[in-house]
């Protein structure tokens, strides 16, 4: 077998295909989607010679294993993990040549949450609205990987990049989220804003690609009642009735009815994608609140 494709040998807890997602369709109720840790996706693609937005695999906590049907160059970035080819150790954060039929295993995250696996040529499943991303909220794009899934690879775009060292910030010990005012800051008491700015929250294990959920003191509302549905942005800090803030990530709903107290800067969200459950979170409020 020499077709350009790979088969899934071990799907892992949640492994999905991700590229840059499908922004521009929110008015139709279509979430943005796309890789949560964009710098890690871009780096993996660069290492194998792909354009930075090519489709890669995004794993969750315990990696995945695949068997390419053709010889292919791959690279693993994001959460550091043990990488093996047919059981033999291979490099993380560098291009790795995998022979046709060999098993490439992306191990459990030693640190962080999500590893990214890029293949030279990119994953070439059929795009939906211009993107190959799996959207967990609305089910667009390819389903999350299961054992035996076969995904096609595209033609190789360029040579891999051999770098002596690749930059990796490392997963945050403390997740610092800088946030500007949200549209409904005035729906909360002054005390709620102080709590958000000073209390230590922790990353809840119930979070997912839709939102980072938090554990910590509830935020008190100044205005009761329901908010008519309104548009939601990436990074919105939405406060549901239980008062614990949720930070919207790539698969967030396009509209929502709970008030948004603040909006986290987009460039802080890659770290949020790598913050394991239990990681302390500090919200740093910027601008007028």
């Amino acid at each position: 077998m020499t077709d350009r494709a790979f088969a899934v040998v071990r799907a892992g807890a949640l492994t999905s295909v991700q590229d840059r997602g499908r922004p521009g369709h929110a008015h139709l109720g279509v979430p943005r989607s796309g890789a949560l840790d964009e710098p890690a996706r871009d780096l993996a693609n660069r290492l194998v010679g792909n354009p930075s937005g090519a489709a890669v695999l995004e794993t969750t906590l315990n990696g995945c294993a695949v068997r390419p049907r053709c010889a292919v160059t791959v690279a693993v970035t994001g959460a550091p993990c043990r990488v093996t080819v047919d059981g033999r150790p291979a490099a993380w954060g560098a291009p790795v040549r995998v022979a046709a039929g060999a098993v490439l295993d992306v191990g459990s995250a030693a640190d962080g949450v999500r590893s990214y696996l890029a293949f030279a040529g990119g994953i070439a499943c059929e795009p939906v609205l211009g993107s190959r991303s799996t959207d967990l909220l609305s089910g667009l794009g390819p389903a999350p990987l299961t054992h035996g899934t076969v995904l096609p690879l595209g033609p190789v775009a360029g040579p891999p990049v051999y770098a002596d060292a690749v930059p990796w910030q490392g997963p945050p010990r403390e997740l610092v989220l800088r946030a500007g005012p949200g549209p409904r800051t005035d729906w909360f008491t002054a005390r709620a804003l102080r709590t958000l700015a000073t209390a230590v929250y922790r990353v809840s294990p119930t979070g997912n690609r839709i939102g980072l959920r938090t554990e910590g003191p509830p935020l008190e509302r100044a205005v009761d009642g329901e908010l008519p549905s309104e548009g939601m942005v990436l990074g919105a800090v939405q406060v549901p009735p239980d008062g614990r803030p949720v930070v919207f990530l790539a698969d967030h709903p396009t509209t929502g009815g709970y008030p948004v107290i603040a909006v986290v800067r987009e460039r802080d969200l890659a770290a949020a994608a790598q913050a394991a459950p239990g990681t302390p979170i500090r919200f740093v409020l910027t601008g007028r609140h």
Binding site: P23, A26, H27, P228, E230, G231, M232, V233, T254, T255
Partner: peptide
């Protein structure tokens, strides 16, 4: 994005 909703329009 231009996202209309019940009483708002989001410009993102």
């Amino acid at each position: 994005e231009i996202v209309p909703a019940a009483r708002t329009v989001l410009l993102d």
